[in-house]
């Protein structure tokens, strides 16, 4: 446990209209760690995730990623946030693919426009990534021609094309039919083997148990439990976690 954290939150506080969504949350994520974040709806999971790459502003505390830090009053497009986004990728629940670009176009846009790669270089890497997520046949399809599971895999490839060290996933299987979920979860397990740091908000307790190194329970804007899956999921210490697990597992 001496390895330095790759992402660290110190006393991060976020309020919307006097309502405290994140209440002085602190957490350190180590490189290569797979963190599953669970908790009741409205507990602040998305807000916490979006604070890490600056899509949310914060009202107190600081977010530290490598040499960059976001503090309160930083705007969504400030420089620190932009540098953080070069090492921290994100995948959204509703995909947010660019509808005017093909699968390959979606994957290559940022490498060309942001990382300054040549089109050839970006496209050959893009094809590789799309094959890796099982979409070798779909380079030229537009998002509207893809299924939900395919879209989400394109979104993952798009994030990976920027060679992030950390990938933030916000309920990325939530909008998918049960049969399609495994397509996406399989891709995540591959990534785990490659040593990517994953922070994922999820309701898939089974997947969390199987794939995560660490489970964090966020409720009422606070981390109420944090530990290995076996401990948090099978022997929860707090009453809040027990109640949540009961509701989810039925």
């Amino acid at each position: 446990m001496t390895q330095p954290a790759i992402v660290e939150l110190r006393d991060v506080t976020k309020r919307y209209h006097d309502k405290t969504i994140l209440d002085a949350v602190s957490i350190a994520i180590r490189p290569g760690e797979i963190t599953a974040m669970i908790g009741p709806s409205g507990g602040g999971k998305s807000t916490l995730l979006r604070s890490i790459n600056g899509l949310n502003t914060i009202d107190g505390g600081e977010v530290i990623v490598g040499e960059n830090r976001i503090t309160q009053n930083a705007t969504q497009s400030n420089d620190a946030a932009r540098r953080i986004r070069r090492t921290v990728g994100m995948v959204f629940q509703d995909f947010q693919l660019f509808p005017h670009l093909t699968a390959l176009g979606n994957v290559c846009e940022a490498p060309i426009r942001v990382a300054g790669k040549s089109r050839r270089e970006a496209e050959s890497r893009g094809r590789e990534l799309l094959k890796q997520v099982g979409l070798g046949e779909r380079f030229d399809h537009y998002p509207s021609q893809l299924s939900g599971g395919q879209k989400q895999r394109v979104a993952i490839a798009r994030a990976l094309a920027m060679d992030p060290q950390v990938l933030l996933c916000d309920e990325i299987t939530c909008a998918l039919d049960p049969e399609l979920k495994h397509e996406v979860l399989d891709v995540l397990e591959d990534l785990r083997r490659e040593g990517l740091t994953l922070i994922m908000v999820t309701h898939e307790i089974g997947f969390a148990r199987r794939a995560a190194d660490r489970v964090v329970v966020l409720a009422g804007g606070k981390i109420v439990e944090d530990g290995p899956p076996a401990q948090v999921l099978d022997a929860p210490q707090t009453e809040r976690t027990q109640r949540f697990l009961q509701n989810v597992l039925g």
Binding site: G54, L55, A81, R82, R85, M90, Q96, L97, R113
Partner: peptide
């Protein structure tokens, strides 16, 4: 947000 999360200004 998707564009920003990819590092675009």
């Amino acid at each position: 947000e998707a564009a920003r999360s990819l590092g675009m200004d």
